[in-house]
Amino acid sequence: MINYKGAPMIETKRLILRKMEMNDANRMFDVIFSDHRVMDNLIKGPHKTISETINRLTEITKQYVSDKFCYWGIVLKESGELIGTIDLYNINEDTENCEVGYDIGFNWWNQGYGTEALHAVVEFAFRFMNIHKISATHGIDNPASGKIMLKVGMKREGIIRDMIRKNNQYKDCGIYGILQQEYLEMNLPNQISILNKIE
């Protein structure tokens, strides 16, 4: 049975994962939602105006009233800068499985922040929510995202052909997954935990 906890604040060595706020709109537009390098990997593509970002944040913040909504902003602990987002979605109560998605601003790529945030949310989902399996996908033209998934213990399960369509072009996606039992067997014997604190 899933233990829903919403989106509590999660602290790791370098990051704080926290709920998004409406005053994050300008920052999100500038470093993530308007940047084609980040958003081209997502189906909807980059935002053209700040109003699109405001609308998206309005949708997000309204859903925090539900403890089934698991969506965080990724913040650098040292500077307080918001650099990305991560969420658990498509949570299926019958299978107790879900998916995870994330995006990191371009200026913070290749510094391990995506791996650290994903590892934290995977650990949170397995240890505190009792999720059975977490899956993630990435366009095959974005192999760096797949590397992040492998680093947290996910296994590549295959390729889904023509999984998404963007700009009238279909894209294949790699699909990855990790089971709760696999995660616990990898991490608990050595008492390895990436989470410093959960509030």
Rank of each mutant, 00 (worst) to 15 (best):
H119F: 09
M149F: 02
M129V: 09
F128G: 15
K133P: 12
I159H: 15
R161V: 03
P143M: 10
V122H: 03
E157A: 07
G153M: 00
K147M: 14
E157L: 12
G158M: 14
I160A: 10
K133R: 09
E116L: 07
I131H: 10
V121G: 09
F124G: 07
I148Q: 01
M154D: 04
N130K: 13
K147Y: 11
H119L: 06
A120C: 15
S145F: 01
A144R: 13
V152D: 00
S135A: 10
V152W: 00
R156W: 02
M129P: 12
F128D: 06
V152I: 05
A117I: 03
I140G: 08
E116Q: 12
D162A: 14
R156C: 06
A136D: 02
V122P: 03
H138S: 11
G153T: 01
P143I: 13
I140R: 15
A144G: 10
F124Q: 12
K133N: 13
I131M: 09
R156G: 05
T115Y: 04
V152L: 02
R127P: 14
L118V: 11
E123N: 03
E157D: 06
F126D: 03
K133H: 12
M154R: 07
G146Q: 05
V122F: 04
I131E: 12
A144K: 13
F126R: 15
P143S: 10
E116R: 05
S145H: 05
S145G: 08
A136Q: 03
H119M: 11
T137G: 14
K147T: 02
V121P: 06
E157V: 14
N130P: 10
I134A: 14
L118Y: 04
V121A: 12
G112I: 04
T137Q: 15
K133S: 09
R156Q: 14
E123L: 04
I134F: 03
I134Y: 01
V121N: 12
R161A: 07
A125K: 04
K147F: 06
E116K: 02
A117S: 08
E157G: 14
F128E: 10
V152A: 02
D141C: 15
R161T: 09
M149V: 00
R127Y: 15
R156T: 04
F124I: 05
G146C: 09
N142T: 12
I134W: 03
T115F: 01
E116P: 09
H132L: 06
Y113H: 14
H132D: 09
D141F: 11
S145N: 06
L118G: 05
R156L: 03
M129S: 13
D141S: 07
I148L: 09
I140P: 09
A125M: 06
E123F: 07
G153Y: 02
F124D: 11
V121S: 05
L150W: 00
N142I: 09
A125P: 06
I140C: 08
E116D: 14
Y113N: 03
S145M: 02
M149G: 01
